[in-house]
Amino acid sequence: MFRAKGFCDLNIEAENSNLKESVLKALSLGYQTIAINQNVTLPSLEKSGSKKRKGAEEGNGSIVPVPVTVNLSSADLKRYKITREPVILTRITISYTDPSSPYLLKSADAIRQYDLIAFVPENDATLKQVMTGKIDVDIISLIPNSATYQLSRSLLKSSMERDVYFEIPYSPCITDVHARKQIIMLSHFLHRTCKSSNIIITSKAKCPTHLRYPYDVINICQFLGLSEIASKAAIGTMAHNAVYCASARRRGVSKCAVQITVSPDADECKKFVGIESAEEYMKSYKTGKRKLSEKCKAKKKKIKVDKSNEVDDSGVIKF
């Protein structure tokens, strides 16, 4: 179980010009939680021929790469004057077009190695699959071209109820004119439909120069229709929640075992060793309780009887 701390940047591309340096730069800027992202595109069945499909089946594991990790020595941290303990996560971004793609099932175990799972739905069908919870999703990163799909309010709400977060990257905003326009439009759209709730701001940085200081990111968010506090939540608490929900999903339903220890100075008959005898003890305790409750009922009955007597008496007096 891991928890995010401090400011979060949940998307630093692994295909980076210099991955280690950009991670270190992000940490030195004030981020504490960082996710290293790997992109995977699932091939669609319809386009690829039957021969190709066979080939893909053979190389089953090759579709999903092994998580990339960065080893940071204490000397590195010292060099960049990082005092807080960094939390480095792994993240996979899967973009796919076919909702019935077999690779999703086949490589499910490989996908589960990652701490965060993000999906890029490329058409309406996949969008619906992602939103309605047919597959495990932590983060949905929408294609910033709003003409791609028809997003409805009910779909967004259903995904919000399952604590799925939407990602808005800011580094394409910095570099590309067209992308900037699209991202502003997308974020305005999200604001209109769901009040910009469940939004996290990530960098999607491909080189260290694209990273920005967290308080500057808050200023960028003014463009994206977020208020000052909301934008702070988007790189802080919302991202914490996203990481927490993801790790809870990975762990599944929580089960617990109870260990019963009886203090040695208790009575001889209450000493039990191991879970089996403890169960016996619990059973005996339960039956004892039942007996007790029966006794209580009996007492109540007695009282009732007494009362009825009184009523009778009073009736006698009345008569």
Partner: peptide
């Protein structure tokens, strides 16, 4: 600017 264009577009 671009921001105004994007905001107006829809």
């Amino acid at each position: 600017g671009e921001y105004g264009e994007a905001a107006v577009e829809k």
